[in-house]
């Protein structure tokens, strides 16, 4: 696969990613702490972090909640078989619903997987999730030929992206 050469991280950016991928240091001046850890001036660390954010390498610098621990105990991955000629118009409308956290178009796999639209729904209970799924069904109407909801039973891992140290 061809990747634009400038999409790759240079060694200093990579050092910043490795130093912060598990989390930002919890001190008043976190970028100064990163700077000391990797031996680069703090101003350069901040310039590079800002540049990575502008380029989309960093989506945002933020907290990732644990939905379960915060009372959103039901998590349903709803999957939908949506007519190919309708998904482009309907996908953004499903993604725009307030209770949908992630919404993607994914491939069908003949004989193994028929669903091409994924919408993650969170709620305090399964009843909540089911009510939300009915809203999605109403929005999709006849364009959706089938759907299922895959409830999560357990988080087995949730570390986020991790680069391998080279």
């Amino acid at each position: 696969m061809n990747v634009p050469v400038d999409a790759r991280l240079d060694p200093t950016d990579r050092a910043i990613v490795l130093a912060t991928q598990a989390g930002l240091p919890l001190v008043a001046e976190p970028y100064h702490a990163v700077a000391r850890a990797i031996g680069v001036p703090p101003e350069e660390v901040m310039t590079r972090v800002e540049r990575m954010r502008a380029r989309g390498v960093i989506r945002r610098i933020a907290a990732v909640p644990n939905h379960y621990a915060l009372g959103y105990r039901a998590n349903g991955m709803s999957v939908w078989d949506v007519a190919d000629d309708r998904i482009g118009a309907l996908g953004p409308r499903v993604g725009g619903l307030a209770f949908v956290s992630h919404c993607y178009r994914r491939p069908r796999v003949p004989g193994r997987w028929r669903y091409n639209l994924f919408a993650m729904v969170h709620g305090a209970s399964r009843d909540d999730v089911e009510a939300h799924v009915r809203e999605i069904a109403a929005l999709l109407g006849e364009a959706a030929r089938a759907h299922e909801v895959l409830y999560s039973k357990r988080i087995l891992k949730k570390t986020g992206m991790r680069l391998r140290a080279k």
Partner: peptide, 17 residues
């Protein structure tokens, strides 16, 4: 306490090739 999973930059590997 596990109420937050992490805090820091949310990296997108697609943005780094």
């Amino acid at each position: 306490e596990g109420r937050l999973s992490r805090f820091g930059p949310m990296y997108d590997v697609a943005g780094m090739g």
